[in-house]
Structure formats: structure tokens, C-alpha cells
Amino acid sequence: MNLPTTTFQLGKYKVLRKLGNGQFGYVYEALDMALAARKAIKIIELEKPDELLSTLLEANILDKCRHKNIVQINEANVMELNGKQVVVLDLEYADGGSLSSEMEKRFLSVKESICHISSMLSGLEYAHNQGFLHRDIKPANILVSGGVTKLSDFGLATVPTGKIGSGKGYVSHLAPETLTKNVTTIQTDIYASGITLFRLVNQVSDWHSIVVSQKDPQKLITNGTLLNKIGFQPYIPQQIKRILSKACTPILTKRFHSALEMRQALDKLRYNIVWNKNSPDEWSGADNHNSYTMEKSRSARGVISVEFSKNGRMQSDKCKKNICELEAVACMNNIVMNTTFG
């Protein structure tokens, strides 16, 4: 469907800009002129009149999945655009955008990443309890609205019908059993949640490039060894690696059995210092009462050191001097890894 690239009018909506491609449609930011409210609208072209019911399935599912961690549907309408019939889903506008775009803009701390995934899992659990699988969990489908994390794009959500994955290069979020046995279950949604968490904590915004740069990525995905092959950032704590390995194991009996079980594993984590990477050479952190900074510096004579400060005061026991570049980076990574959790 050729939609205008500039602002256009569609019924009561003034369509402002394209937000992205959802499953089987385009998502736009729009102004609902009747309510003077900002909305996200998804426009789905209706090829044949008999496809109306199947096109409205996403709307039906969203209506049955009203949860604070699932993007809300306001209404669904059949409208005419450029002489063609389209289905328009009127959705909650997420002012914070998607985690995918957020990751491109800034560093997401381990705590932030886990909080987002924990909230998303709460919405996912609700959808599962209503009898629906999402089947397309990825950072681009997790939105933030008014500071609340929301699972969005239920375009693939339904009971399995053979349509798998997004077909947009995110086959790598599919569980091994989906590729080998063509099945989608609660546990395949959990697998995709694990991959999503992996991407967030490792700051992988360009996932597709990393996957295709691997030797024989299809085999790695099918074997369930993709994450091990890509590897973790050196500052990722063991606790997260354990949770990710349980979420993304190809052995179904060892994988989390429900979204609640995975969420509980994340909620149980107790944070110590929340670290943010300001640049490759500088970290800043905070706990409830203190602030921390950690910096790699090079003196005029070329001596490399790591300086660790707590509330602006140098902590000599954690500082290192006269070390090489690699040692300095390893030192900072180890401190982050060992102090993220209590």
C-alpha cells in the first residue's frame, strides 16, 4: 500500500509521522482531533472483504488482554484510504518509544533492562493466561508509555497457525524447537524474552548485523547456541548469565516453564550499585545513598590508571595505577560485574 509520506488526514485522525512497521501494517503517530489526543494508529490494508475478521484478530486479542503492561487498544474501525478499505487500530501512544530506539540513544543499565523485561513478562503472563501467545517478542515491540513498560504488536499473536516469526530478520528470536518442529508455545515466547533481555543487557541495538556476521547463524539458532557464540559483555554479572541460560536453553525441561517463573527469577535479584557506562573509559554508579565514578585515565607520561571515587572521594583500595590498557578495562569491567548485585 502506498501511503503518503507527509501529514495526511484519515477520518478523525491527523496522521503525523510513521513510527514503524507492525505486523501486517504500518504504525503512525496521529492526532485524534475529536478528543485532541495523541494516538498510535495501525493501518492495515484490507486486500479482500473476507479477510476482515482475520484482520481484526489483533484488535480482538488486545481487547481481551487489557493489562497495565500491554499496550491498550481504544477502538478498531474500517475506513477508506486512497480508495481502498483499511482497518485502523486506535492504540495507546507510547511517549517513551520502544526499547529498540532507546537502546540506540543511550546505555541502558542492567537494572533498567531487567525492570523492563520483568514488566513485559507480567503482560506476557497475562496474555498467556488468556490463551494467547505473542510470538514476536523483541526490543522494538516493547514500548514505554508514561514510564510504564508495555508489550505491543500482537500482529502474530494467536494460537499457532503456521505463521512463525516476524519475517523481518528476527528469525534469531525463534526458539530452536520452532525451527525444527514448527511449534510455538509459552516456552518459545520465553525463549524470545531471553534473547530480548540478552540484547538489552549487552546493548545490542544492531542485532541483525551481529547475527549475520556469525559463521552459519542458522545452525547456531537451530542448535540454541547463538548466545554462547556471540558472548556476553565482560561486565555482565553471573546472576544474569544464569537466568539467560535458563531462558534460552534448547532443552525444554530446563527452560523456564512460565513467564511468571522467569519474572520471579528477575524480581529476586537484589541490586547493589546501578552502573551506567558514560563512555568506554568512564562509568558512573549509584546506590540508595551514594554515588560512584570510575574512570580510566592516562597521564602526560602515558601511565594508565583507574580511579574509583565514592561520593567524590577517591577509594584507593579500588584504584589501580601503572597498568596496561587491557588491564584497566578488565579492572573496570570486574568492578561493575562484582558490584552490580548485593
Binding site: N69, C115, S118, S122, Q264, D267, K268, L269, R270, Y271
Partner: peptide, 17 residues
């Protein structure tokens, strides 16, 4: 298991959910 007590508003949000 609840989330940690270190942020009361977040904890109340957890309980609400």
C-alpha cells in the same frame, strides 16, 4: 518473591501489578 525494598514507589507498583 517481591522486588527489593530500595525503591518504595517501585515496590508498590510491583504489589499493584
Amino acid at each position: 518473591n517481591t522486588i527489593a525494598l530500595d525503591n518504595v514507589p517501585e515496590l508498590m507498583d510491583w504489589f499493584e501489578t
